[in-house]
Design a protein around this nucleic acid. Sequence first.
RNA 1: UCCAGCGUAGCUCAAUGGGUAGAGCAUCCGGCUGUUAACCGGAGGGUCGCAGGUUCGAGCCCUGCCGCUGGAGCCA
Length: 432
Amino acid sequence: MKTVDITIDKLGYFSGKEVKLRGWIYNRRSSGKIRFILLRDGTGIVQCVFVEGQVPEPAFDLADNIPQESAVAVTGTVREDRRAPGGYELTATDMQVISLAEPYPITPKEHGIEFLMQHRHLWLRSRRQVAILRIRNEIIKGLRDYLDEQGFLCCDTPILTPASVEGTTTLFPVDYYGEQVYLTQSGQLYNEAICAAVRKTYCFGPTFRAEKSKTRRHLTEFWMLEPEMAFYDLNMTMDLMEDLICAIVSRVLNRRREELKILERNIEKLEAVTKPFPRITYAEALEILKKAGMNVQFGDDFGGDEETVISQAFERPVMIHRFPAAIKAFYMKRAPEDNRLALGVDMLAPEGYGEIIGGGQREDDLNELQKRLQEYKLPSEPYQWYLDIRRYGSFPHSGFGLGLERTVAWICGLKHVRETIPFPRLLEKIYP
RNA sequence: UCCAGCGUAGCUCAAUGGGUAGAGCAUCCGGCUGUUAACCGGAGGGUCGCAGGUUCGAGCCCUGCCGCUGGAGCCA
């Protein structure tokens, strides 16, 4: 019989056959004449059983003292076994060392977050972290597949941007041939130009905020998905936000059950995420807060506590629209029924996870927009190209930005966004 | 930037009222034929974050600094 070189995720196709697996030692246990090695290969984890007399002596010895995370090749027979977590085991016939590891700092026991973050490059190898990475990837694919199917064109926007936009205190400066430019905070303004070319577009990439925010939901570098649609009003935009979130939640539920289980995610909470999502106005949100005993006045923005109270009032994501214009960006269109209100919308995830989407309808009237730039004390020169979108065939349009890491944190049920990206960039921390 | 808490073995933590530093895991040695963070026995392992101060005596009290964690503020 020929030994085939396979990966752990394919074990089910090779029951009873002899195979070769290459990977790393995840853990090992010994019980005298029988020794167990947990082998991980990046596609899964399988237990390899070494029985004295049934494997060459060097391999049997190795099974007792090979250091954790050493790279090895194990040959053996695939066996279905109800006792095994994955349903399959490997009865080992031999093992070769590819590379012996030095004593590995991350043991199968508990560690503090500081230690784990300092060893993030190694921490990624753990079962939990791999499960998060798989779900993150599933969410990205789900978002893109959904938008692509709806006729969106992914066009992407620049990461280096000229000075402008609202203030520079939260921007990371970069030297650009002697000129100071900045890392992008959002691709929205560019998307508005692109949607006039292709009707429905989106960008997906990293964005940067030099905020001094030290919370469980802030990164200085995070990934944002930003769709922008020509001829969409606020209601159509809320429909899209709702459909998009339903699409990714059900996709993760269908395709990443195992990973959700590893993360001990409460599946029922995700299964409750179905259409329609509640849509409330800012004024209605204020009522909820007042009933909860919070002192919030019209014109106040919501902090973390307020978001938590509102989102916990519903078991689905909730959309809050028609915010006071004064606390929103200059480009938001005003509500036709009340000029003090902006046609913006935020989506708050359930279970206190806070804002995962922010967006709304854009101001499409040239004169209004110019007036707004003055009110917000913004220079007009850098915005000439942006105003051109209104000069040459202006059209109603809307869009939003979805924060990927917050969405992943919610779907995975994680306390902190730092685990949702392989190498998180946090306030003044950039190692490894 | 502000508030609070924490810095002791490789890791996670303990140490009466100030009196010669302790456990589990990891490592090494030994035992065990079905272990699931295996278990059992033994051994090695310490500049108690750094600097100064009080005291006969400081891991413990005081001052300053550094680092981390949680939160607030800030924030598409």
